[in-house]
Amino acid sequence: MTLTRRTRTGELHLHFARRGGRTALLRDRQKAPLMVVRPFELPCGTLMVFIVNPTGGVLGGDHSEIRVEVEPGARALVLTQSAARVQPSPDGAAATQDLRFRVAAGARLEYYPERTLPFAGSRLRQTLRAELEPGAELGLSETLASGRVHSGERLRFAEYDSRTEVWQGGRRVYLDRQRLVPGDETRAPGIWAARDYAASGVWVGAGEVTDWPATAGILATGRTAGGAVWLRGAAARGPVLDTALGVAREALRAQLFGAPPLRVRR
């Protein structure tokens, strides 16, 4: 390792289970710079935890490993405290993140991180794999900015590579792969055009969706061949996309999970 390159490996392993009629965080293994604050029980009975990175950013060369296991009957909501600010390394190394979720039958896991914000010259490679037993429920959404737009860094990151897979009962029900390498073509109208914020998501549940949420010109939803519900969205302004995403997310949760709205206080 040179003096110009310092790397970190963060680990976070969370194990949720139902005990005494309530969801509890049985075990949490934390290695800086990843950690969680004390879990909070929401009025609906879901146990919520915030992932915190006290260093204020993800640096090129860093690696993060996140593992979440949810036992039968437990309800877990995992959020992040702030946006993931991806910063470059002097030698151009990529930051990497590996997430693995295991959700048992009758359990529910929801993961709604804050926006990913890639700085100029940064690289991020991320893989997420969720393995669900039949009867398990999953909610997942993510948002991505085209960069620090107001600092003149629109599409100035070097690489963004993300792969998300959801498996249920040994069968893949959802696959989303995005690899963005900005260049002259991606800065031209027709790719991102005037939109600087994108969203994606997937939900798996036993309920039927009869009222498909959509916002004209911003957000759409549908169903994969494997039965999972997908979401795609893009907007010129982050708050506009966030509002549309929040409405769609609650509509899907209500229909697929039969769940009341999430009431999260930050």
Rank of each mutant, 00 (worst) to 15 (best):
H13Y: 10
L25I: 11
P90A: 12
S122N: 05
H15A: 11
W203Y: 14
E137R: 09
G246E: 08
A194Y: 06
M1L: 01
M48A: 15
T96E: 15
P72T: 09
V240N: 04
R8A: 14
S146T: 15
S89M: 01
T2S: 15
T9N: 04
G21F: 08
R179Q: 02
L99M: 10
A76P: 02
G226K: 11
K31T: 15
Q81D: 09
A236P: 04
P118K: 00
F157C: 06
E11R: 14
L262D: 02
G106S: 14
R237W: 00
V52S: 01
R27M: 04
Q30N: 07
P54S: 02
L231A: 05
R22T: 13
L99A: 00
Y111Q: 03
W230P: 00
A193M: 01
E69L: 05
F50Y: 03
Y197N: 02
I51N: 03
A259Y: 04
L140F: 15
L140C: 09
A228F: 02
N53F: 06
P88F: 13
L132R: 13
S64M: 06
M35K: 13
L219K: 01
P261M: 11
R179K: 05
R177D: 12
A248P: 12
A83K: 05
L252C: 11
E41V: 13
G73A: 06
R265Q: 11
H13G: 02
D196S: 04
E41P: 04
V247G: 02
E137A: 15
P239Q: 01
P189Q: 04
R253Q: 02
Q30S: 09
Q255A: 06
L109P: 00
R8E: 12
G45R: 06
S141E: 13
A234N: 10
T80Q: 01
L241H: 00
A84E: 15
A206E: 15
D242R: 08
V86Q: 07
V204K: 09
P260Q: 00
G21D: 07
D176S: 11
A225I: 07
C44R: 12
Q168F: 06
T143V: 10
T116L: 09
A158Q: 14
G190S: 08
R6D: 07
L79P: 10
R22W: 08
F50H: 11
A214W: 08
V37D: 08
I66T: 12
L109R: 03
A83V: 09
R100P: 10
V68A: 14
T186P: 06
G10L: 05
